[in-house]
């Protein structure tokens, strides 16, 4: 597993007075692809938002690259090299594809080869054809690619990828899976939230199973695939 990129310990999160996350512990190693599995409303997105500094009601410890980021504003966390791709994509409407990418652009923290729009268009060819179009006019799949691409433009060291396959056509899901594998090959650490077990299995190494705000199980994805009991108890079958 190597050195930890992201390490969450004893995380509790609240929306108002509703207690959503209970003592969540989780680790994402360098170069690892880890999946958060769980049903609707299990708390997967809440874990990611907490890590990104987007929740005010929260206790516990979040470390990124060995540094406590619990008190930092999202933009500071982002500049340390952690990117977040929200499930609702949040493309800037009125901005073209290129402009959306520009908002995310930031020089790499280390000496690695920086992402450019051209490199992204190699990864997602559909986007290249639409570079001057209003981001809001793209199809769902293209928007998903754009939101991932926009996060990559910041040259992050790790990505929180919230439901990248949700609501997409099978062919786009395949493209997305290929892209995630490419990123992994380049050494990117990825925490992925998924309801689609097959997608997670195709790209991921390990997984945490989340149910009602608690981590219920942690293990290799092929073990979870094979374990009917866990799938029935905590995941949509």
């Amino acid at each position: 597993m190597g050195e930890a990129m992201l390490k969450i310990t004893g995380l509790n999160a609240y929306y108002g007075r509703a207690h959503i996350l209970h003592d969540v512990d989780l680790t994402l190693g360098r170069g690892e692809v880890v999946a958060l599995l769980g049903r609707n409303g299990a708390g997967k997105s809440t874990i990611m938002k907490s890590a990104m500094g987007l929740l005010s009601g929260r206790s516990g410890r979040v470390e990124f690259r060995g540094r406590d980021v619990g008190a930092l504003r999202p933009y500071r966390i982002s500049r340390l090299g952690l990117a977040y791709v929200p499930e609702d994509r949040r493309i800037f409407s009125g901005l073209t594809v290129l402009e959306n990418l520009e908002v995310g652009r930031r020089a790499p923290a280390d000496a690695s080869k920086p992402w450019t729009p051209e490199r992204l268009f190699d990864l997602f060819p559909n986007l290249g054809e639409r570079r001057d179009q209003d981001g809001a006019r793209l199809s769902g799949g293209e928007q998903q690619m754009l939101t991932v691409g926009r996060a990559l433009m910041g040259n992050p060291l790790a990505i929180l990828l919230d439901e990248p396959s949700e609501g997409l056509a099978p062919i786009i899901v395949e493209q997305m899976a290929r892209a995630v594998k490419t990123l992994k090959d380049e050494g990117m650490s990825i925490l992925l939230s998924e309801q689609n077990l097959y997608f997670a299995h195709a790209v991921g190494d390990r997984a945490y199973v989340v149910d009602r705000g608690r981590i219920r199980y942690e293990g290799r994805l092929d073990e979870i695939m094979a374990n009917d009991e866990i799938r029935r108890a905590h995941l949509a079958v």
């Binding site: 990104m52 987007l54 933009y75 982002s78 959306n100 908002v103 995310g104 926009r150 910041g154």
Partner: peptide, 24 residues
């Protein structure tokens, strides 16, 4: 200008700009 792009982005969704590392 890049500044203008950031301003327009923040006008649409300032939290997302924050997430992308823009110092609001």
């Amino acid at each position: 200008t890049r500044w203008g792009t950031l301003v327009r982005a923040a006008t649409r969704d300032r939290e997302m700009a924050d997430i992308l590392g823009v110092d609001q």
